[in-house]
Design a protein around this nucleic acid. Structure first.
Lengths: 195, 195
DNA sequence: CGCCTTTCTGAACGATTGTTCATTTTGAAT
DNA sequence: ATTCAAAATGAACAATCGTTCAGAAAGGCG
């Protein structure tokens, strides 16, 4: 039995998540009401509760899904090989991935403080896992003499901050293409880690 | 005539701004109520309106003051001299300044979207002015052959993002002192710009 | 002390918040 | 055409929001 009678939650459900993501990114979680989200979907506020138990879950679910997607996407893109190859792949993947979902990225970085304690802890685990991906690459390269950084942990944080910063100023109709941007960033990352 | 009779707004006024800054940084502008701020100060909500015309002004004033303070502080710290000297001074100043006022920094980066259109435009002018400080240093150094960056504007954004990122993980009781952190960052910035 | 301005209270306002729920509408399956 | 679960309505809820304001408290000055 595929779909039950009268059902079209397979349509409305995603619309709710998309509207919430768009609005949260634009105005912030706390500033967006359930009625605004419902309005975007073309439905009354009460109907949203067929698709989420509450507003907080709407936020947590999209953040968790985003982090999961980021980790999985890197896992698929990781070419293995030398630390240098992997660092370049990481840099390019990070930029491409982040520029492809600006709203989700924005929320993942800005709405951490609006997560309830337990949800926050869960997201932090995923976030930390991603940071460790880069830290491990840098550690390997440092050990092999391919990189020369003063402090591996600090270098990891610096690189991620630098790369993520691209989302704050990138515009689709801007001066540089994503590919050109990725090239420039890789050049700076490479030099910054002393390779 | 100094202070008027019955007055102690010179005491309460700053307390209101401090409480607001602390709470906005912790929970976000939209999630903090005037009653919460008043509670921190030890006063009723109505009393706040002796010190601010409305909630929005509370946010705008602290952001504008912060940006003004940042620009002035750099202006005082700018050593002049070679682009290399100035870039190092900029790097160290940025880190020291930002780590000294984590709440104000957090608000300046996170609450832009909660500014009314006109206030947002004003803050953007100040923000842009600060970006231009770095961009000009990089441009001068590039022209003099001291730096080798692929794109001056992009390098400026990358450096600022990297430096500002330090505020997201720095802890006073952490592994590294501010001075050590500044040293490491300067090392990476120097290499990233090809100097 | 009594005056007078500043400061604060405490209640009130209309609007909006997240969420619930009895009821109605919908639409595929029988 | 009838059935029946899923989905959506629309009203209601208690709580909270930013803001206003008349009146009470406070405290330096004459």
């Amino acid at each position: 039995m595929a779909r039950k009678t009268g059902s079209h939650s397979e349509i409305t459900g995603p619309l709710v998540r998309e509207a919430a993501e768009r609005l949260f990114a634009r105005h912030g979680y706390a500033a967006v009401s359930m009625r605004q989200i419902a309005g975007e979907v073309g439905v009354q506020a009460g109907a949203l509760y067929n698709y989420t138990p509450d507003k907080q879950s709407l936020l947590y679910d999209m953040m968790s899904t985003h982090m999961q997607s980021l980790l999985q996407s890197w896992s698929d893109a990781d070419p293995g090989g030398t630390p240098m190859d992997r660092l370049q792949a990481f840099t390019r993947h990070h930029i491409h991935f982040h520029l492809q979902r600006p709203d989700a990225v924005f929320i993942a970085y800005m709405e951490l403080r609006n997560l309830e304690a337990q949800n926050f802890a869960r997201i932090e685990v995923q976030r930390k896992a991603y940071e460790m991906v880069l830290e491990n690459i840098l550690q390997d390269g440092q050990g092999a003499g391919a990189f020369h950084v003063g402090d591996v942990k600090l270098a990891g944080m610096a690189v991620i901050a630098m790369l993520t910063g691209v989302t704050t100023w990138f515009r689709d109709d801007g001066r540089l293409s994503v590919e050109e941007i990725a090239n420039h960033y890789w050049d700076m990352v490479r030099k910054a880690v002393g390779a």
